[in-house]
Design a protein around this nucleic acid. Structure first.
Lengths: 229, 229
DNA sequence: GGATCTATGACAGTTGGGTGACAAATCCGC
DNA sequence: GCGGATTTGTCACCCAACTGTCATAGATCC
């Protein structure tokens, strides 16, 4: 799994970044200060480092220089300061990229992938790009891989079933009416709502240990269906 | 001297970029269309390419893909559009960085220098450094060496098959739709998706022990193809 | 107990993908 | 340039898998 170290003193931002990266399939760990980050990277090197510029104690620029001193890890600055001087200084210090907060997670991961292409030949083999996975107990759904697993074992589902499952997983814990599901999975404006029942039934046969008493894909009578942990 | 190719249709902006780059000591040349830029790069390869996204005729995304097809030159997008979708799409297409107009020339050159560090690390590394190899069970692919092996034995694949395989390998574990593959391997915007089937079939004959029941290059009905371990 | 909502099995029409044949395009040694 | 070999793209056919419909049975609510 691809590991990312996030050095950021603001607890809220650090946590948000960590969660978002984990959602995208990265193994993300945080550090609140430059010193802590440097220690973490020496002890257990991540594949990428994200670093804020304004840190208490050792600042971001110094942190980048120290990281660079003994590590070729790709470094991305994530800073609130949108100033050419800072950007140039950070890149000169050894950073590979510079993003201004607030960052879109999709852009961040796209930039990490772009960096990976470049960094690939340097160290060992290519750290394979992680595939995001949504987990529901022993049930794992990976939209990017087009794969569903139960207890680690792949389950063969059809395209419609997969879309349906992804739609439910994306709104996990919330009820989706048959109308909404028809709309989102089939693109129908109107149509036979029973169709959803049939596909939910087929899906249950495949992903529920006991399809008769569903644990994850549950019916809410009169309302619709819901996927829960 | 370091050469930069600037592909940008707006005369004023192109000229301003060229002058600014020349002031900074670069040997900068311009192209007003993607076609012109591609020709120029083939004829006389620059060390960096800057490209706008909104170009008449062939657009920037397509331009990037075509550049990437046979060139590892660092590509920086310089666009007026500040939209996550565009940024992600450009980076996915093969760009290394994305700047939003108006760009500060100091930032631009700092980013070019940062890219050069990475680009040099790739080519100029110690000669003994092993060529990166992507492995899928007994299947080995070296994108740089243009080689495919099965159980250590070289397998003869054609250029198209090789590109297709590399594209799949680069996104190992993820489904790629026929559209995406057409787009990335052939550069088609639209086209017959069955073409992909045929080449996948031919590839399977060569790399799968039992082509009838593929283990690595698998079909996901209704979704596309995926390369897995 | 009746009304309403949901589950499920069967079935036929449709779709999607594999494959072999073939012609055009490209490559390559000469 | 030239002719043969290789590669590439198009097409048509076939089969397996999937989808949507329906009828029936079961569950739940009042």
């Amino acid at each position: 799994m691809t590991a990312v170290l996030v050095i950021e003193d603001d607890d809220r931002i650090r946590l948000a970044l960590l969660l978002a990266l984990q959602d995208e399939g990265y193994d993300a760990v945080g550090a609140a200060t430059a010193e802590e980050g440097l220690r973490a990277q020496r002890r257990d090197p991540a594949d990428y480092v994200l670093v804020d510029l304004m840190l208490p104690g050792l600042d971001g620029f110094e942190c980048i220089r120290q990281l660079r001193r003994d590590d070729d890890v790709p470094i991305v600055v994530v800073s609130a300061r949108d100033d050419t001087h800072d950007i140039v200084a950070a890149l000169e210090a050894g950073a590979d990229d510079y993003l201004v907060k607030p960052v879109a997670i999709k852009e961040l991961t796209a930039r990490l992938r772009a960096l990976r292409r470049r960094a690939r030949a340097v160290v060992g083999g290519p750290a394979a790009e992680p595939v995001p996975v949504l987990a529901f107990g022993e049930l794992e759904i990976s939209p990017d891989a087009g794969e569903v697993r139960r207890g680690g074992r792949p389950v063969a589902v059809t395209r419609t079933e997969f879309r349906l499952l992804c739609e439910l997983a994306e709104h996990a814990g919330r009820v989706l009416s048959r109308q909404q599901l028809l709309q989102r999975v089939w693109g129908y404006d109107i149509g036979d709502e029973r169709l959803v029942d049939v596909h939910v039934g087929r899906l249950r046969q495949k992903i529920e240990p006991d399809p008769a008493t569903p644990r994850h894909l549950v019916t809410l009578r009169g309302m619709g269906y819901k996927l829960q942990r």
